[in-house]
C-alpha cells in the first residue's frame, strides 16, 4: 500500500513522517520516530501503557492510526519534563515509590497529567476512576494514587 505523508506536532516540535494506512500511532511513535516511552502492553486499548495526549485528550495510541495524527497536537512522555526539570507528577512518582517495574509509568503519567489539567483538585475516587484505564500489576495502585494527590496539591501551591 502507498504510504501516507503526515505532518503533526509532537511535544512542541513539528514532525513529518510516512506511515502505512493500517499503522497505529503507537507503532509510528515507537518504530518510526524513536519515541519508545509509550509501551504496547496489549494493543487493544485495555492497559493504557501506550497513553498519549492528543489535542488535550488522553488516548490509547494503539487505538489511533498514525494517519490520524495529521494536524494534531500530540504530547508523549518524552515531552513531559522541561529539559532536566521533572514535571511534579514525575517527581512525586519517584518520591512516593509509585513505580516498581515502571512499564506502566509513562502511561500513568500521561493520564494523570490530563486529569490534573481538567481537574486540579480531584478526590481519591475521581483519581481512581480516571486512572482505571491504566493497568499496573506491581503496586496495587496505593502509592500511585498518593503520588497524584501529592503532585496535585503541589501544583495548586498547597505544599512546599
Amino acid at each position: 500500500m502507498p504510504a501516507i505523508a503526515v505532518s503533526t506536532t509532537i511535544n512542541d516540535d513539528t514532525v513529518e513522517f510516512l506511515c502505512q494506512p493500517d499503522e497505529t500511532l503507537l507503532d509510528v511513535l515507537r518504530n518510526r520516530l524513536g519515541l519508545m516511552g509509550a509501551k504496547e502492553g496489549c494493543g487493544t486499548g485495555d492497559c493504557g501503557a501506550c497513553s498519549a495526549i492528543v489535542d488535550g485528550r488522553v488516548v490509547c495510541s494503539c487505538l489511533v492510526l498514525g494517519a490520524e495524527a495529521e494536524g494534531r497536537t500530540i504530547e508523549t512522555i518524552e515531552g513531559m519534563a522541561n529539559g532536566n526539570e521533572l514535571h511534579p507528577l514525575q517527581r512525586k512518582f519517584i518520591e512516593h515509590a509509585a513505580l516498581q517495574c515502571g512499564i506502566c509509568t509513562p502511561g500513568f503519567l500521561m493520564a494523570a497529567k490530563a486529569l490534573l489539567e481538567v481537574n486540579p483538585d480531584p478526590t481519591e475516587t475521581e483519581i481512581r476512576f480516571w486512572l482505571a484505564g491504566n493497568l499496573c500489576r506491581c503496586t496495587g495502585y496505593d502509592k500511585i494514587v498518593r503520588a497524584v494527590q501529592d503532585a496535585a496539591a503541589e501544583m495548586r501551591g498547597e505544599t512546599a
Binding site: 515507537r30 519515541l35 519508545m36 516511552g37 509509550a38 509501551k39 504496547e40 508523549t76 512522555i77 518524552e78 513531559m80 519534563a81 521533572l86 514525575q90 517527581r91 512518582f93 519517584i94 518520591e95 515509590a97 513505580l99 515502571g102 512499564i103 509509568t105 509513562p106 503519567l109
Partner: peptide, 21 residues
C-alpha cells in the same frame, strides 16, 4: 531509610529500555 530509587528518572521520562525497546 527511603531514598529515591536510582532508576526512577529513566522510568518516569520514558528512557528506560524494556524488552521491546
Amino acid at each position: 531509610t527511603r531514598p529515591l530509587r536510582p532508576d526512577g528518572i529513566d522510568k518516569v521520562t520514558g528512557r528506560a529500555r524494556y524488552g521491546a525497546d
